[in-house]
Design a protein around this nucleic acid. Structure first.
Lengths: 200, 200
DNA sequence: TATTGATCGCTAGAACATCTAGCTACATGA
DNA sequence: TCATGTAGCTAGATGTTCTAGCGATCAATA
């Protein structure tokens, strides 16, 4: 939707208006992609009968498993940005539905190794690999220059997003303090969810 | 992180390995951007003391308010993809914290109009506008060709993500069903939740 | 070897957002 | 006027997360 704006700008590349049209088209493309990705993620969650965290956890486990890297509850909790307790329950869930198994660590008798089951591997692969292949295909078709352009662009966007207001950004939890005033009492505050899940 | 791979490929643009390096760099850049964006969203939620749905609702309300479009609970529920009951509670929350007010509809005495408060407008603007400006600046600095490249690329990626396995993709909640087999049955498709959240 | 402090994963109990079901008040059309 | 539909709310249940604290185990040291 509305991504042809760029074409109409051919004769005005020096013109502010055309430039504006182009940036709108670019940002719109980003929004559209984001929306598509969010919808995909939701579809996948429904299809596999699990929530966002569960799916994120499973994908991390599979990725690490493929890379021959053992993962324990502690590492998983850190990756997901959830507490140790929540991780225990998450593992219970995924173990009960047959997506993973807990195995004792050979090095540390307190610790566990979490191993995704082959069946889970298969399910995730069936669900996501087609998409992944298509994405790789698109990326592979780019010329070196275009690839460089896109990498730079995304890097810039990442910085823009990362740099969000270190200085004020509100005072934290609780109300907006129009007239209502008083009673701060921050009933819940905290939260600390999802630790910036980077992946590899 | 790891986005220099493209440079090393100058002498091998015809080479499979270099091409592979480039696509890896591109996909890595996308992942990194996604992670940054997720982290930003979390920071914003914490800063404003609300969950994802609340923030999404507030942004929708503000956008529609700017566009002079009145929103009622029903429409908001449809946009967010949550039930009427959850919407009521959500409105209670946001009203109590001073982010919006409920006003009677002049046309239908059953209905409400939800109006975001100026204070809320201010808070969201302070939190997000800096980022938005930086993103616009980056998009504006692109050459017409680069802009076109990026729009095409993102469009392709969107299609790749949209096209995810209409045919099988598991059967829903509960267990893993190993071999399982097809039976498409697409229970929801059309989706519902989180109406492809575009924002402005 | 025995002790001490840190670490690992688990349990208990509470907070919260969401859901479904059902309700009241109002609108609309015969 | 009355029947049916719609908007938003309440009640009760479910599921996911949190904080606090526990037992088992490891690592370092006297």
């Amino acid at each position: 939707m509305t991504s042809e704006a760029v074409e109409t700008a051919q004769h005005y590349w020096y013109d502010d208006d055309a430039q504006r049209q182009r940036s709108i088209a670019v940002l719109e493309a980003m929004r559209t992609y984001r929306a598509a990705e969010a919808a995909m993620q939701r579809r996948t969650q429904v299809a596999m009968g699990m929530g966002e965290t569960d799916l994120l956890a499973l994908r991390y486990l599979l990725r690490m498993h493929r890379a021959e890297h053992s993962v324990g509850p502690k590492e998983l909790a850190a990756y997901l940005g959830i507490s140790s307790a929540s991780t225990t329950v998450l593992l219970d869930r995924l173990e009960k539905t047959g997506h993973l198994s807990r195995q004792p660590s050979p090095f540390d008798r307190r610790a566990l190794i979490i191993v995704p089951t082959p069946a889970s591997e298969e399910a995730v692969r069936r669900t996501l690999d087609g998409m992944h292949e298509r994405m790789i295909a698109i990326a592979s078709d780019l010329s070196p220059d275009d690839a460089q352009t896109i990498v730079s662009f995304l890097g810039g966007m990442r910085d823009a997003v990362d740099a969000i207001d270190k200085h004020d950004a509100g005072d934290g939890h609780d109300a907006i303090v129009t007239h209502d005033a008083g009673h701060g009492h921050g009933h819940d505050s905290g939260d600390g969810r999802r630790g910036a899940g980077r992946d590899a």
